[in-house]
Amino acid sequence: MCIPLLTQSDSSSLKRRKRGKFDLWISLCLLGIWAAPAQAQNLESGEQLYRTLCARCHGMLGEGGEGPSLKRAQLLHAPDDDSLVSVIVGGIPGTGMPGSRQLRGGDGVDVAAYVRSLGQLPPETMPGDPNAGERIYRNEGNCASCHILDGEGTGIGPELSQVGQRRNLAYLRRALTDPAAEQPRLVDRYRGSLNAFLTVRIVSEYGSFEGMRVNEDAFSVQMRDLAGTIYSFDKADLISYEKALGHSLMPGYAATLSTQQVDDVVSYLMSLR
């Protein structure tokens, strides 16, 4: 994925700013120039160092945590191998990404090779017909009622404009058939990775509300409902507050679409790069 897991509105503005640059890297990626030709033993020592230095923030398998997921073909701050090494050794000033100066010399290159290997999503074959998928997206799927794609639609769920870059086939199929299985996370430097679309149910003296948590602290919670209205509640005033972990406000399409149709929609999403 080429955009970091910030809030959805943040990522769309980032995308607009950096469009040209991303296009360039996408083409390099397709040409296969992307992958660093890493040696086996470099990768091994890189993995060792990664586990000790980076895993506590980026996850043992690169899945993210306090820092963003590194299982992404394109890294915002590290478009090429040189800049990746300098991010690793020098950190990203002004953010939660510390430098590992002890990796100057060959070790930084090893870690970079390992980070690249985390991001090498093997080119996956589309399981269906992306054109048919696009028609389903626009018509019977009614996906645009909840998603913004290339500027069109309503932003209830995450923006899907480049979803094929940041998510793989298995993830996209699961997103359609079992939406609650894995939900996008919002990586907060100081709070860890929070579910960015957590369903919350709130009862206050003004009535009952269901929606997605936008933000929360010990004293208050902010929520967006399916109509797009944002509410802010003081926790002290609530009659009840439920965090419905493992629930999604996106309907599962396993029953309403055929297996073929799901494959077609997944293929369309994969083509969004």
């Binding site: 586990r51 996850g59 043992m60 945590g65 306090e66 996370r185």
Partner: peptide, 23 residues
Amino acid sequence: KADVEYRPGQPFLGGGEQALDGD
């Protein structure tokens, strides 16, 4: 848990953690 060898001025950790953070 992981293997590690002491080298002066280098991390000497022998493992790491994946914290169950966020929610």
